[in-house]
Each structure stands twice: as structure tokens, then as C-alpha cells.
């Protein structure tokens, strides 16, 4: 009896072992397949990005020089550099940064703190998420209708700031909200148990914890704003002006040249701006955005080391 049972046990065991071996082989094949598939996809995406940058670098690098970056255009835009466009882009970004950062952080704090409890806030969250996906041209037209015409800002730096601020806000609000919500409940409990109010807990504990995430969001959204032509198309841009840009209040009411608009307009008028200048400006713009992103990565790596 007992031998028989043992024998059955052995038979069953060896049958199970065989099944497991078959499954092991299957699993290995599947692993190899999926690794190849996903690795290939990843490689393809990376290659696409690199190809893009490589082409622009290849075409634009010969044009890139100290003179190109620091001199205004000459000879009816057919020679010279793109300094006024770089300066205009930097000016637009600076103002947008100063306006959008505080507004966006306040908005994000508001949504994170009241988001789940109140129906209005849930609705606001959905609206902001929708705004983040709104095409930039819509912002451009809105800016034209409201800031340029209704508020009589004219096509100006100021109208550009306002429009780009609106354009960057949703992303900043959403990243701030997300970053704050990732603050561990244990930290919030710790603050409350210490007798801090909800606001004190938020400002003193959750916000410092979330700061690196928030800054990353701010910088990334600025980089996006810097490269968009359409929000500033009707609100702030001028192709090129020989008027001296002076630092003063009147500057706010003047339109500014900027890189994306220069690219769009320069390409639309063939024969005026030679191709090599367009490629050079293209590369300059990409480098500006990459520089911003590199800054974001740097901040992230530094603060992560500090906090975790």
C-alpha cells in the first residue's frame, strides 16, 4: 500500500517537474521576445530624437558662431546674427517665469489642499487638466482678443508675458499639485501632531518636500513656452525691428523679436533669410530648451540627494 502511494507520489512529482520545465522554457522564450520588442521600441524612440537633433546640429553648426549669437541681422536680414531674437526669447521667458511661478504654485497648493473635499475644486482640477492639453494657438488667439485688444496692451512684451503665463500655468499647477500629494502622509501627521495648523504643515513640511518636483515642472513648462511660436504670434512678436530696445516701462509696450517667430516667419518668406541662418537659429532654440531641461535635471538630482 505504502509503496504504491510513494510510487504514485514519485510519478506525480516527475510529471510536475516536466511541466515546470516546459513552462520554464516558455518563460525564457517569452522573456527574450519581450526584451527584444521593448528594447527595440526604446532604441527606436531614442534614435528618432537623436536623429532630429543630429540633423539640426549638422545643418546649423556651421552657422553657429560668437558673432551669430551676439550680433543683430544685417543686409536686410540676409546676413549677421540673431541676438535680438535670443534676447527677446529670454525676455519673454523671464517675465513668464516671474508671473507664472507664484500663480502656478498657489494654484497647485490650492488644488492639493482642497482638491478632494470640494466639488468645485475637483471641477477646477479637470478644467486645468483640459487647459494643459489645449493647443497653443488657442492661447494665442485668446491673448490677442483679451490682452492685445480688450486690455489695449497692443502687440507687446506685456501681452506676450500674459499669454505665455496662461500657457504655462496649467502644467505648473498640475505638477505642483502632484508633487504636494506625493508628500507622505506620515510627514503631514508629524506636522499636525506637533500642533502645526494645516497651512503651516503645508508650507513648512509638504512644500519643502515637494520643491524639487515643483521646480522641475516650472522649468519644463518654461522650456515648452520658450519654443512655442503660436502663443506669441499675434500677441508679442515682431519679425525684426531696428528700434533700440531700452530698459524702461515703455519696453513693456513694445513687441519683441523672438526665435520661434523668426523661424516661422523667416521660413515663410523664401529668399530673404538664407537657409543656413534658419538652421542656425533652429539649433540655437533647441540648445536653449535643452539647457533649461538640463537645469531641471540638475535641480532634481541635487534635491533628491538632499531629501531622500
Amino acid at each position: 500500500m505504502q509503496t504504491e502511494a510513494t510510487l504514485t507520489g514519485i510519478a506525480q512529482r516527475s510529471e510536475w517537474e516536466q511541466r515546470a520545465a516546459r513552462r520554464d522554457a516558455q518563460r525564457l522564450r517569452k522573456n527574450a521576445l519581450l526584451t527584444t520588442l521593448f528594447g527595440g521600441m526604446g532604441l527606436l524612440t531614442t534614435l528618432l530624437v537623436f536623429a532630429l537633433i543630429a540633423v539640426i546640429a549638422y545643418k546649423g553648426a556651421p552657422t553657429l558662431s560668437w558673432e551669430f549669437l551676439t550680433q543683430p541681422p544685417r543686409e536686410g536680414m540676409s546676413a549677421g546674427g540673431v541676438w535680438p531674437m535670443i534676447r527677446g526669447s529670454l525676455l519673454l521667458m523671464l517675465g513668464t517665469f516671474l508671473l507664472a511661478t507664484p500663480l502656478g504654485i498657489f494654484g497647485g497648493v490650492c488644488l492639493a489642499e482642497y482638491g478632494e473635499r470640494s466639488r468645485i475644486m475637483r471641477f477646477m482640477h479637470a478644467s486645468v487638466a483640459a487647459l494643459a492639453g489645449t493647443p497653443p494657438i488657442v492661447y494665442g488667439l485668446f491673448g490677442l482678443a483679451i490682452f492685445v485688444l480688450k486690455f489695449h496692451f497692443g502687440v507687446s512684451l506685456l501681452a506676450g508675458w500674459c499669454t505665455l503665463t496662461l500657457f504655462s500655468l496649467p502644467v505648473i499647477v498640475l505638477t505642483t499639485e502632484t508633487a504636494l500629494k506625493t508628500a507622505p502622509a506620515a510627514l503631514i501627521d508629524g506636522g499636525l501632531a506637533l500642533g502645526l495648523s494645516r497651512w503651516q504643515t503645508l508650507w513648512r513640511i509638504a512644500l519643502p518636500y515637494a520643491l524639487s518636483g515643483i521646480l522641475t515642472g516650472v522649468i519644463l513648462s518654461l522650456g515648452r513656452a520658450a519654443g512655442e511660436a503660436t502663443p506669441v504670434l499675434f500677441t508679442a512678436s515682431i519679425y525684426y525691428s531696428t528700434a533700440q530696445l531700452t530698459l524702461g516701462w515703455e519696453t513693456l509696450r513694445q513687441p519683441v523679436a523672438n526665435l520661434p517667430y523668426y523661424l516661422a516667419e523667416g521660413y515663410r518668406q523664401p529668399g530673404v533669410v538664407p537657409d543656413h541662418l534658419i538652421w542656425g537659429a533652429c539649433l540655437t532654440l533647441i540648445m536653449l530648451v535643452l539647457l533649461l531641461n538640463a537645469g531641471a535635471i540638475f535641480i532634481r538630482s541635487r534635491t533628491r540627494r538632499r531629501y531622500l
Binding site: P184, A186, L187, D189, G190, G191, L192, A193, L194, G195, L196, S197, R204, I205, P208, Y209, R306, Y307
Partner: peptide
């Protein structure tokens, strides 16, 4: 706030602030 000034609390998992 006054209550929690009087009554402090320590949690299961240490939760120092960052």
C-alpha cells in the same frame, strides 16, 4: 494647536521632516 502642544506624539515609523 493648543491641545497638541500639551499632548505630543511619536509614531510607529520615524518621520523626521526633510
Amino acid at each position: 494647536t493648543r491641545l497638541r502642544r500639551e499632548v505630543g506624539m511619536v509614531f510607529q515609523k520615524p518621520n523626521p521632516f526633510p
